[in-house]
Design a protein around this nucleic acid. Sequence first.
DNA 1: ATTAGCACTCTCGGCCTGAGAGTGCTAACG
DNA 2: CGTTAGCACTCTCAGGCCGAGAGTGCTAAT
Lengths: 339, 339
Amino acid sequence: MLTERRATILGMVVSEYIQTAEPVSSRAIVDHHHLDLSTATIRNELARLEEEGYITQPYTSAGRVPSDLGYRTFVEVLMSEDPVLAAEQRTIEHQMHQVAGGLDEWLSLSATILAGAVGNVAVVTKPRARASRLRNAQLVELNREAALLVAVMDDGRVRQRMLPQRTPVTQAELSDRATRLNVRLEGLDATAVRALAAELPDTSEDAATARAIAELIDEQRTAEETFLDGLNAVLRQPEFSDVDRMLEAVATLQAYRVRRLLEEAVDAQPGATQVVIGHEHGDDALQEWSVVLSRYGDDDSHGTVAVIGPTRMAYHRTIPRVRYVAGLMSHLLHEVRQS
Amino acid sequence: MLTERRATILGMVVSEYIQTAEPVSSRAIVDHHHLDLSTATIRNELARLEEEGYITQPYTSAGRVPSDLGYRTFVEVLMSEDPVLAAEQRTIEHQMHQVAGGLDEWLSLSATILAGAVGNVAVVTKPRARASRLRNAQLVELNREAALLVAVMDDGRVRQRMLPQRTPVTQAELSDRATRLNVRLEGLDATAVRALAAELPDTSEDAATARAIAELIDEQRTAEETFLDGLNAVLRQPEFSDVDRMLEAVATLQAYRVRRLLEEAVDAQPGATQVVIGHEHGDDALQEWSVVLSRYGDDDSHGTVAVIGPTRMAYHRTIPRVRYVAGLMSHLLHEVRQS
DNA sequence: ATTAGCACTCTCGGCCTGAGAGTGCTAACG
DNA sequence: CGTTAGCACTCTCAGGCCGAGAGTGCTAAT
C-alpha cells in the first residue's frame, strides 16, 4: 500500500532523477528537501517502494531509479504541471508566426518549436481529412497538350496534378470549364464528384476533369506525412552517452517506426493528452522511451503532435507544452478552414 | 615529384584505407598486392609520399593515412570507377518506380535509394527554377476575412498563402480580381510584378494581392527543400565510434548547414559530377567530410543530388552512383515537365 | 517508529604494464 | 644506386590492479 509519506518520497525520487539522471540516494532526498527524518528512515521507505515496484536499483547499493510504474504514478497523481506561462506562450506564438508559407512549412516549424521547448524529439503529423470536400478547382494551361489541375480542399489543402488534353485548348477555355465545374462540384466529396462525373457525357473533357478531381480529393500523401525535429537535443541526454545506445536511438527514431506508433496510439479522445511510458507500448525498440501525444484539429481533419524522449522525461513540462501546441494548432487549422 | 611507382603505392594506400579505416602499413601493402619488394623499400617510398604531402601518420610509427591531397590525387588520376552494372541499375530503377506519388515523395525516395547504394548520407534538393515567372494566380474564398492565394509558376510549381481581406468579399469578387491580375501579370517575374504593383493605388486590394504574388514567386521554401537519408548508415562508420564525434556528425548534417553547402558548390557545369574533399570547402565543420554532388534537370529548373560522408569514402563507388541517379532524375523530371 | 553506527558491496577513474604494431635508420649487398 | 635485412625505438591499446567513494542493509538502541 502506498502511504502518503511513501508517495511523497516517490515524488521526490522521480523529480530528482528526472533532473539529474543519477540514481537518487537517501542522503540526497533528506538534504534537498530539508526533511526532519534520518537517511535510515528514508532507506526503509525506499526499500518498501522497491518491493512494491515503484523504483529499482541499477546495482546493489546504488541509489534508486524510478520504474515505469513509478513514472506512471508520478504522472497520474504526484506531479503538478509546470504551466506554460504568458511569456513562454508569447515566445511560442511569435515563432509560429515567423513563417508565412504553406501548411508544410508551418507543421515543420511547429515541430522545431516544440522540440526546442521540451528538449526532446517532437513529431507532428500532417492533418488528414476524414473525407475532404472540394472547395475550388482551377485549370491552368501548361502547353497545348496539357493543363495543370489545382484543387483546393475545404481543409485548406492544395493538391495538383497534370491533366493531358486530347485536343489543344486555350487558357480561356480552361477557365470556362473550371467555372462550370466549380458551380456543380463545390462542397462535394470524392464519391459525390464521381457520381456527378458519371452523369456527364463519358468522353467529354468535363467528365475527365471531374474524375481527376475526385482522385485528387481521395489522394493521401504517404511520404512527408510527418515532421520531426530535436534529434540533436535528445542525443545529448546522458542516457545516450555510449555509442551503441546512441546508434540505437537514431535508428529507433527513424520516422517509419515512429509513424506507426502515432497511428496506433490515437484511440484517445481528441483534446486529451496521452502519455505512454516505456513498456506500456508494445514495440520492443521503445521500451526505454516515453511518448506524450495529443491530437489537434477536429472531427473533420486531425493530426497528431507528439514528443518522444527517454522515460526519464520532464513530464510536468512536456505534457502542458504538448497540450498547448496542439491547442494552438487546432486553432490555427480552424482559422484556415474558416467554418 | 610523383614517380609512377609512388603513384601506384599511393593508390594502394588510399584503397586499403578506404576499405579498412586502419592506418596502412608497409607490410600490408606488400602482402595484399604480392609485390616483389621488401617492406623497407615501401617504407622509403612512403616517407617520400609523406614529405610530398600525400599521406600522414596519425602518430609516430603508425601506418599511413591519406591526406586530402592524397584523396584528391586518387580521385583525379589513380582511381578507376566502379561502374553501375546493369543489375544494379535495374534494382535502382525498380525502387524508383515503387512510388506513384508527387514530386516530394519521389525526391524523398531517391535520397533513400542513393543513401542505400553508397552507405552514406544522401541529400536531394527540390528542383528550383532559375527565376520563376507567374503563369496563373487564383483566389479562393476561405471565409469573410481571408482568401487563399494560389499561384502556379511557369515551371509547374504551385505555391499558396493566406491573404487577409480588409473588407468582406465574395468568391465572385475574388475571381474577378484574379482575372484582372492574370491579364497583367502572366509571364512576369517577381521584380516585374512588384513594379506593376507600385503603379496601382497603394491601398487597393489589387495592389496588396500583387505584392503577395511577388512574394510567392520569390519564395524559397526553406523547410522541405531538401530530402536527406542515410544518417544511420554513416554513423556506423568507424570514424564516429566515439560519442563526441557522433554528436558532432549529427549536428553537422543538420540540413541548414548542408543546404548552404549545396548552394555554394553549384558553380560546376551541369551534368558534371563534382567532388569536394575535406579542407577544400570553407566551412570549418566540414573539414573531415567529403561531398560528391551533381546537378540534375536542365537550364530552366534544376536541383542537386549529393552524397556526404567522411573523407574516407568509397569515391570509386560513390561518384558513378551519384552521376547515375542524377541522370535518372533529369530524365524523369524531363518526362514530368514533358516539353 | 526512528535512528546511529557499521560492515559490506559495487562502481569508477587512475595508474601501470606488457604485448604488439610499425617505423626510421644504418649498414651491407648486387 | 636502388634494395634490403636487421634492429632499436616509439607509441598505442587492452587488461589488470587498486583505492576512494558512494550508498545500502542490518542491527541494536532510543
